[in-house]
């Protein structure tokens, strides 16, 4: 999300990669929202929907999101200059 006028249209390979990974972080909640609402609409076979299978599905999606967030956390971390405490305190 780089708003504002930015003269550098062409970025280096590594910062280009970082930006795309940040895009990936931003898509994660959308993915989670879609998958977690899936049990509301699915028609799994002839019998009634079982709590146990929905439980496994919901927690499985949860674990997958955690792993993805873990993988993406380090490469997308804000740089030193961006995130530090302001002022010499």
């Amino acid at each position: 999300m780089s708003s504002g006028p930015n003269p550098n249209v062409f970025l280096g390979r590594s910062s280009y990669r970082t930006r795309r990974l940040r895009d990936a972080v931003m898509i994660l909640p959308v993915l989670g929202l879609l998958l977690w609402n899936l049990p509301l609409v699915w028609q799994g076979g002839p019998g009634p929907k079982l709590t146990s299978s929905v439980l496994i599905f919901v927690f499985g999606v949860w674990l997958a999101l955690i792993v993805l967030a873990l993988v993406l956390a380090r490469p997308t971390m804000p740089g030193d200059a961006e995130g530090k405490e302001s002022g010499p305190r």
Binding site: V25, M26, P29, G32, L65, A69
Partner: peptide, 13 residues
């Protein structure tokens, strides 16, 4: 607990 998870994994928003 799903709501806060979504907010956190999408912290860039």
């Amino acid at each position: 607990y799903l709501g806060p998870t979504l907010v956190l994994v999408g912290w860039w928003w």
